[in-house]
Structures are given as structure tokens and as C-alpha cells.
């Protein structure tokens, strides 16, 4: 049975079912209780699960660090960091502790924890509340990185993230919280590492994730009017990356455009481009294009912000440059 839900409701439904299934799953973070989270994602959960949803002080280091300790001692925390931009405050706890304990301890410790955090711009939140930092996390062996673009994916990937025995960065997009879509009711799991073709096509592969999937779909629709049939591939998880599906799609279309909201230099698009160049150069009949944020902090004024966030028009232009 499908039910229409917003992306935020789908995340909540995913967490709710996991907390019900396993009492060792709990949520903590800043204002996740009565306030329901800064963006309302945890609204109502504290009433349904008293003691399992915990408001923390503004202490990101302790939120993540203590989640690591709780996970090592047998719990399965879902820790919320209010904005992905705040990850700088608690990065050691993720990259030197959570990510490495399983390996450093010779495989004897497990750190099953989810770090939920919203990313992205488009709301005039300026340079410290609008970034897309996913490339940081993909550069840390031991961490998995999940970036759902639809309500159904948000729910299914949440279940998989909670059940995973590793630290998982679960990065939501602020612009997507209110979008609606059909979501399977009850238990629903999407395994990590499986891409999804959001629109089939034959002429060009557009790889995009999170908010950019929607921009890519809009671009694909416009391109169709001009006779270009674009395929939109959403990897859904950046680590593990479904390289097979990407190569298969590129094999079909011969052209690759990668779209992400994060800064282009050092962005994950470079990794995907390099992977395709290394493993499938002969599949391409045109250069790989990337559409991403220019190398700048995110400006406040909507007049400026809208210039730097990748747009439908920029995606269309990049695609057309290949023909």
C-alpha cells in the first residue's frame, strides 16, 4: 500500500518504524524533542517514544562523540546535527572516532550510528547554513553517505541506514522536506549502494543527487522538447557508489553530465568523472561535463544565491554543449 507523504514525513516514518522495531534505536540532537527539530522532521516522536527521543544541549562534539560511545556499547543512535555546516564542530568524532574504530580495533568494534543532517541552499540562509559538504564524508573510509531525493527513497534509505553496522551520514535537503510523493507503508528498505534511474533516456546520462535530481528532471523535460532524450540517474548513496549502474547508463547514452550543488572543485562529481574516465572512457563519445557551485562561499542575498546554485538552465546548457 502506498501513501502520499512529504519527504520530512517519510524520514520520520522511517525512524519511527525503526524505533518501534528495535528499542535500542534512539534519536538525540538539538531541539529534536518538543520543538520537533529545527525543520520539524522529528515532530511528535518524543510523545510517541518518550525516553527514546532526547534533546541535547548545543554540544555537537558531545552529540556525535557520545553517540559513538553509545553505539560501541550496543545502542543504535540516530544523532541529528541541525545543519551539515555544523559538522566542522564535531568532525573528529566522525572521522577519527566513528569511522575508524571498526578498522583500528581489528574488526572487533561496531559503530552503528546514523548522523542525520540537512544540507543545501535556496533559502537565503547564507554561508554557514547552506552548504553541501558531502564530498568531505565520502573522503573518509569507514563512513557511508546517503542523500535521498524523494520521499520514498528517504524512508527506505533511513531503514537501511539505521540497520547498517557502520556510521552513516544521512544528508537531507532543506528544499525537499516539503515535497510530496508516494511512499510504501510499513517496513520498506532500500539497500545502500543501489542507484535509481529517475527518468529513462537514450541520449545523455545526467547523474544528480538530492535537490539536483529535481533540477535535472526539469532540465530533462525541457530537453525533450528539443529532441534530446536525457536519462537521469540518482546514485542515492555516494558511498557505497553504484558504479555499475552509472557505467551501464553511460554505455547506453555515450554522454555524461554530473550535477551537484556542492562546490565543483573537490566535489564528488570529480570522483564520478574520474571513475567513468578510468573504467569506461571508451563508452564516451563526448567530454564529461560537470554542473556545480562555483568556488565561492554561499552568498546571502537571493539575487546572488540564485546565481551560484546550479540551475535548470545551466544543466540544459551543459547538455546541449555535448551535441
Amino acid at each position: 500500500m502506498m501513501k502520499e507523504m512529504t519527504y520530512a514525513e517519510a524520514i520520520r516514518d522511517g525512524m519511527r518504524l525503526e524505533m518501534k522495531r528495535d528499542p535500542n534505536v534512539y534519536i538525540w540532537g538539538e531541539d529534536v524533542g518538543k520543538f520537533g527539530g529545527c525543520f520539524g522532521v522529528t515532530a511528535g516522536l518524543v510523545d510517541e517514544f518518550p525516553g527514546q527521543v532526547i534533546d541535547t544541549p548545543i554540544s555537537e562534539t558531545a552529540i556525535v562523540g557520545a553517540a559513538v560511545g553509545a553505539a560501541a556499547a550496543g545502542l543504535r543512535p540516530i544523532a541529528e546535527i541541525m545543519f551539515v555546516d555544523f559538522m566542522g564542530v564535531c568532525l573528529d568524532e566522525l572521522f577519527n572516532q566513528a569511522a575508524k574504530m571498526h578498522y583500528m580495533f581489528g574488526g572487533k568494534a561496531k559503530i552503528p550510528m546514523v548522523l542525520r543532517t540537512p544540507c543545501g541552499g535556496g533559502m537565503g540562509a547564507a554561508a554557514q547554513h547552506s552548504q553541501s559538504m558531502e564530498a568531505w564524508f565520502t573522503h573518509i573510509p569507514g563512513v557511508k553517505t546517503v542523500m535521498p531525493s524523494t520521499p520514498a527513497d528517504a524512508k527506505g534509505l533511513m531503514a537501511a541506514a539505521v540497520r547498517d553496522n557502520n556510521p552513516v551520514m544521512y544528508i537531507e535537503h532543506k528544499q525537499l522536506l516539503g515535497i510530496k510523493g508516494d511512499v510504501p507503508e510499513g517496513e520498506f528498505i532500500i539497500p545502500l549502494g543501489k542507484a535509481d534511474i529517475k527518468k529513462e533516456g537514450s541520449d545523455v546520462t545526467i547523474v544528480a543527487w538530492s535537490w539536483m535530481v529535481h533540477k535535472a528532471l526539469a532540465a530533462a523535460e525541457a530537453l525533450a522538447q528539443e529532441g534530446i532524450n536525457a536519462e537521469v540517474l540518482d546514485p542515492r548513496t555516494l558511498v557505497p557508489l553504484d558504479t555499475e549502474s552509472i557505467l551501464k547508463s553511460v554505455g547506453k547514452t555515450g554522454k555524461l553530465v554530473i550535477v551537484h550543488e556542492a562546490v565543483k572543485i573537490g566535489g564528488y562529481g570529480g570522483e564520478i568523472a574520474a571513475m567513468v574516465a578510468e573504467e569506461g572512457l571508451d563508452l564516451l563519445d563526448a567530454p564529461i561535463k560537470r554542473v556545480a557551485m562555483p568556488y565561492t562561499p554561499i552568498p546571502f542575498s537571493p539575487a546572488l544565491e540564485s546565481c551560484v546554485i546550479p540551475s535548470e538552465e545551466k544543466i540544459i546548457a551543459a547538455v546541449k554543449s555535448l551535441f
Binding site: 562523540g65 545502542l75 572516532q97 583500528m104
Partner: peptide, 29 residues
């Protein structure tokens, strides 16, 4: 980085101060 989780040893740690929040999480558990 020596640990023995079965014995409750959550690890030596190469980062000064890193064990403090980890111990709080274990106590929470």
C-alpha cells in the same frame, strides 16, 4: 588503538580528549 570491547575497553585513543564524550555515550547506554 588497542581495544577489547568484550572486556569493556572502548579503546586507547590517539586524539587527546576524544575519550571524554565516548565515555559519556557508553554511560548513557
Amino acid at each position: 588503538h588497542i581495544a577489547d570491547v568484550e572486556l569493556g575497553i572502548l579503546g586507547a585513543n590517539g586524539i587527546v580528549g576524544a575519550g571524554q564524550p565516548i565515555s559519556v555515550g557508553a554511560a548513557f547506554a
